[in-house]
Amino acid sequence: MNALEVKNLSLEFLMYDGGFARRYLRVISNLNITARAGEMLAVAGSSGSGKSLLVHAILGILPKNARVEGGMTWFGEPLTPALQKKLRGREMAFVPQSVTYLDPLMRVGRQVSRDKAVVGGLFDRYHLDAAVARQFPHELSGGMTRRVLISAALAGKPRLVIADEPTPGLSPHLAEHAMKHFRELADAGAAVLLITHDLELAVRFADEIAVFYAGTTVETAKASDFTDENRLRHPYSRALWRAMPQNGFKPTVGVQPYAGNLPDGCLYAPRCDMRSPECGQKIPPPRAVRGGEVSCYNAR
């Protein structure tokens, strides 16, 4: 079942240019993802690829100068601002990256839920001592904080859990633990959307991976496809694979274009070695190739 579907999403910000003129800057273009109940979808991309902005768009917490186009649906129903407000923090849960999201002056238990039984149950599940509920955020270790944040997100019995970069700064051991928690949530029936730039962890725990580049989805494929360069479809996914330290560490020339500097047509075309004339015309629409979805005219 499709919990969340994002179709052809575009996002622009009204910004000031040098002097007094202002214009719209496009930061997300033609973006597509589908988060299914019971599955974990990892969104992988570098900073500036639009990952975090997508999360803000889904939760409906974009700043006022943002302009959104395209459709988002929640279990088939249009995801309107009113619906977002209703779901946020309840059926749609957000696990933030850091401690700064906890109120430093409030005991941890109350921040997870007002209902003591709920807190007890969640703490049990995440191996947190009952005494932790009476502590303040600064008394927690990094790993405990992470588990508290997850508990707080789950108190509302969410159907979609969005985790924003849950692993940077954690030791490999703790990162693995955090990923296991999210895996369990998916296995228990929730849709999990994992935002990450750690492709390696995504490959190990997610069902599907969507690769973002300069604010658009270039490829969505089964996580297992990312273990072999030849099973990947988009030239950018392949370049990512080749650049990983364990797979050759080979850089590809060029940089990701940023908002205000986007090329016409396919956003990856300027760096692509498979480019053909049509690539410069229009952003390629997603199409099915070998069981995955790729936005490229030349992928086979």
Partner: peptide
Amino acid sequence: MLDVITQAQ
């Protein structure tokens, strides 16, 4: 803080 391609570069 960089993506893998930039890291390799």
